[in-house]
Design a protein around this nucleic acid. Structure first.
Length: 456
RNA sequence: GGCGACGUGGCGGAGUGGCUACGCAGCGGCCUGCAAAGCCGUCUACACCGGUUCGAUUCCGGUCGUCGCCUCCA
């Protein structure tokens, strides 16, 4: 089992993954708030942490991946008002869309996808503990976390409370003792169509507390990896960390791992910014394989520009791997493969450097093509490439494209062969163009022509 | 303003105190009836200014610029 290094936001450097129990890793990732279909930016943590899990499993760890779904939230209430649906119904519908959209990534599901609405009991218990220990105080049916009661506050996001821009009053600001305090529980307000009983009256949980409660519930305390988008570091993760540590006396998580943003037009892709590209549209436009390859083309912590040219390049890369794979045989790989395989996994062990790992894959592809081009006696075995690609959830590139050419295309191909034998190349090329127009590519080889589907 | 991250060739993106990343695109060649795919070769690099050093893209300091967060946000 090799040493895995990951960047930890709390310490600001690379730290080794050191599980509580040898070989077992718990990962909690902040998932979406379901009030609309998710975009490519929302999908990045889903992809990054799903692939990280794959890698850790490959390395022999037993991994539990938790990705929550926030289904209680002001935005959901607001969105539901524009529909005939209740906020609960809207959240349920959007959760279904979310599951469908992410299923299309073909990365499997997280092991747990808890809903805030199903975790009310543990949430209330956690808040009670905070109130009991004077880290929180009720006020008119709300409950607030007292930031000043917890001196380490700010350590995760590396800022001091005094440095925060203390904006004007949000709702309830007058109930807060300190502007930096944040809500753990929000009293029911007219117009909201969901609420739960609590020791402080009817209401609903604040945003940050649900993650503290759910993570502890499913993974225990001081679990190995807490993940999410870098835009969540403050205040969301700062607050999560503060709540749990104040209530339990131990840290919530061991490592805090954050992915960079997906940009569109040089700015963060965001629903509120209006510059979004929906996940399901990206998949139908560029293909799932190209999208995964594109996301792996940048280091997870760096921003990634969503640009048609980058996606097109990823499509070409997909095709390059797929073409190379067609010439492979099932079986163990040649001796030149081992160092490349090692480079691949070392790159991933070093803070999950997928771009460096991909370079090893492409080196492998060239090496295999070179063998084939030089007419090496033995066919190249695919085992190592399969192993590498499967960690990136791209092993399907090794499979044959099942699409069979339709009969009219096959007839045209025969027609072209007749013309070529008759040396009527002009007509033969014209037929080839007709085949291309039907979506198929002709490649002549020493053993005869091959037909390949164009595009994906 | 504060905090954090980052600035590598046409684009994306690795890496290193002196030696080819890799992919896409371009150019030349091989192969092909011609292509495509593939292989070989090849041009545009390390934001700027200082410093350390025999030598820095790589270390140190500063400048400029970009992005994120400081409000809901993956």
């Amino acid at each position: 089992m090799r040493q895995i290094l990951l960047h930890d936001t709390l310490t600001g450097g690379l730290r080794p993954l050191q599980p509580r129990q040898p070989g077992r890793v718990g990962i909690y990732v902040c998932g979406p708030t379901v009030y609309g279909r998710i975009h490519v930016g929302n999908a990045r943590p889903y992809v990054v942490f799903s692939l990280l899990k794959r890698f850790l499993v490959h390395e022999g760890f037993e991994v539990t991946l938790v990705m929550n779904i926030t289904d209680i939230n002001d935005k959901i209430y607001a969105a539901a008002r524009d529909t005939p649906l209740s906020s609960i119904e809207l959240a349920a519908a959007m959760t279904e869309e979310y599951v469908q959209d992410t299923d299309a990534l073909e990365l499997g599901r997280p092991d747990h996808e808890p809903l805030a609405s199903e975790m009310i009991e543990p949430i209330i218990e956690l808040i009670e503990q905070l109130v009991k220990s004077s880290h929180a105080y009720p006020a008119d049916g709300d409950v607030y976390f007292s930031v000043s009661s917890y001196p380490p506050y700010g350590q995760l996001s590396h800022r001091r409370v005094e440095e925060l821009d203390q904006g004007e009053g949000v709702q309830g600001a007058k109930r807060k003792r300190d502007p930096a305090d944040f809500a753990l529980w929000k009293a029911y307000k007219p117009g909201e169509d969901s609420s739960w009983e609590s020791p402080w009256g009817r209401g609903r949980p604040g945003w940050h507390i649900e993650c503290s409660a759910m993570a502890e519930q499913l993974l225990g305390l001081v679990f190995e990896v807490h993940g999410g988008g870098s835009d969540l570091i403050f205040p969301h993760h700062e607050n999560e960390a503060a709540q749990t540590e104040a209530a339990r006396g131990t840290p919530l998580a061991r490592l805090w791992v954050h992915n960079g943003m997906v940009n569109l037009d040089r700015e963060k892709m965001a629903k509120s910014g209006g510059n979004i590209f929906l996940l399901h549209e990206a998949i139908s436009t560029y293909g799932r394989d190209a999208l995964i390859l594109y996301l792996c083309g940048g280091h997870y912590r760096q921003p990634l520009e969503f640009d048609p040219e980058h996606l097109a390049a990823a499509q070409v890369g997909v095709r390059r791997i797929r073409d190379a794979a067609r010439g492979l045989t099932v079986g163990s790989s040649p001796r030149w493969s081992a160092p490349l395989r090692e480079r691949f996994f070392e790159a991933l062990a070093d803070d999950f450097h997928t771009p460096a790992a991909l370079a090893a894959v492409f080196d492998w592809v060239r090496e295999a093509n070179r063998d084939r081009a030089s007419g090496a006696p033995a066919a190249v075995g695919d085992a190592d490439l399969r192993e590498m690609l499967s960690v990136l959830a791209l092993e399907n590139l090794l499979g044959e494209d099942e699409r069979e050419p339709p009969s009219d295309v096959l007839e045209l191909l025969e027609e072209r062969e007749r013309l070529r034998r008759a040396r009527d190349y002009q007509e033969a090329d014209a037929v080839r163009e007709r085949i291309t127009a039907l979506g198929w590519e002709v490649r002549d080889s020493p053993t005869g022509p091959e037909l390949l589907p164009l595009g994906r």
